[in-house]
Amino acid sequence: EVDVMREQKYHVYLTADEQGRVIQSLIRLKNNLITEGRYTDAVDDVLCKVLSAKKKRQFII
């Protein structure tokens, strides 16, 4: 049998404010990598996932 490593998935629940901060941080990191002439592929992937994440509606009573 061959052990196939599967990509682990993680679920992170963020408030709208936290999500905004994560996006800003990722954009800052991407800009720093660009100025250093380094690849931004991994940051782009995470940024796309954060931007396209489902929004969970919460009702506060």
Rank of each mutant, 00 (worst) to 15 (best):
E1R: 08
E1Y: 04
V2D: 11
D3Y: 07
D3Q: 11
M5Q: 11
R6N: 08
R6I: 05
E7L: 10
Y10K: 12
H11V: 11
V12Q: 09
V12G: 05
Y13K: 13
L14V: 00
T15A: 15
A16F: 02
A16Q: 11
E18L: 11
E18R: 15
Q19R: 15
Q19D: 02
Q19F: 01
G20Q: 13
G20D: 12
R21F: 03
V22T: 09
I23M: 11
L26M: 14
I27R: 14
I27Y: 06
I27L: 15
L29V: 14
N31R: 14
N31Q: 14
E36W: 07
E36K: 15
E36N: 12
G37H: 13
R38P: 00
Y39D: 11
T40A: 04
D41F: 11
A42E: 08
D45Q: 15
V46M: 10
L47C: 07
L47V: 03
L47G: 02
K49D: 14
K49S: 11
V50N: 01
V50G: 01
V50T: 09
L51V: 05
S52K: 13
S52M: 05
A53L: 01
K54I: 00
K55C: 04
R57M: 07
Q58H: 08
Q58E: 05
I60S: 12
I61L: 08
I61W: 05
